[in-house]
Design a protein around this nucleic acid. Sequence first.
DNA 1: ATAAACGTTCACGCCAACGTCAAGGTCAAC
DNA 2: GTTGACCTTGACGTTGGCGTGAACGTTTAT
Lengths: 124, 124
Amino acid sequence: MRIGELAERAGVSTRALRHYEQQGLIRARRSANGYRDYDEADVRLVAQIRALTAVGFTLEDARPFVACLLAGHESGAACPESVDVYRRKLAEIDAEIRALVARRAEVAAQLKQACPGCAIRRTK
Amino acid sequence: MRIGELAERAGVSTRALRHYEQQGLIRARRSANGYRDYDEADVRLVAQIRALTAVGFTLEDARPFVACLLAGHESGAACPESVDVYRRKLAEIDAEIRALVARRAEVAAQLKQACPGCAIRRTK
DNA sequence: ATAAACGTTCACGCCAACGTCAAGGTCAAC
DNA sequence: GTTGACCTTGACGTTGGCGTGAACGTTTAT
């Protein structure tokens, strides 16, 4: 299939696909006319990339998952390198949450100090 | 005082001070030689800006606080516009926290699915 | 033959808050 | 009079993941 079809099936833009290629995440055969040519395996590759970037992974983070799929594994997460990334990302997310919670408390404290009567109920 | 002294006393770089000026947050008188000249009020202004950016506010968010101080109030948070910003930022932070928590759950779910035995204990 | 709908490769734009030179004046001390 | 520490105004670089043209070739339908 050509880039437009892959883009539609994977739910990304053609620009994104070319970007993934530039970053070395996916490769494409070329038809005689120079058009990129993809197959079903590429759909799964891109789907994997999307599943990761959708939850905040960078393309760099996605590399091990892509490599894992290319190595023949059914899931991109089946390799230890991928699991390592998962653990690292979980730790990063936890750290971000902690930072945000602390930040919220700090902001609430500033508000309270400047305006004791102001409601500070959480949106949460 | 000159820009270097203000920078040191306020705990920011001279570059940051020039940036704040470019953004219209602070103004500086000029000495005969063209050097920027600041006073004590500016130290408080910059301190206010820092207190806000330190907890994730943008310089744009800081404008009402600066205006409030320039209007003669003791605290930059004493004006209703500032309080509005506080409330908005609290809501934004809450939204970010919710998004991150959901994201964490999603990542943990992906890991669990690909590697049921993998430890998913929180760093938290 | 031509328009429509695809594809190709550059390459700048975006967003925030400065960092980091570059090329040059000013001023106090020695 | 010269070093050195300060100041000035530009203006590009950083970070990520593309968006958005530009300028052009390919294919298909009419």
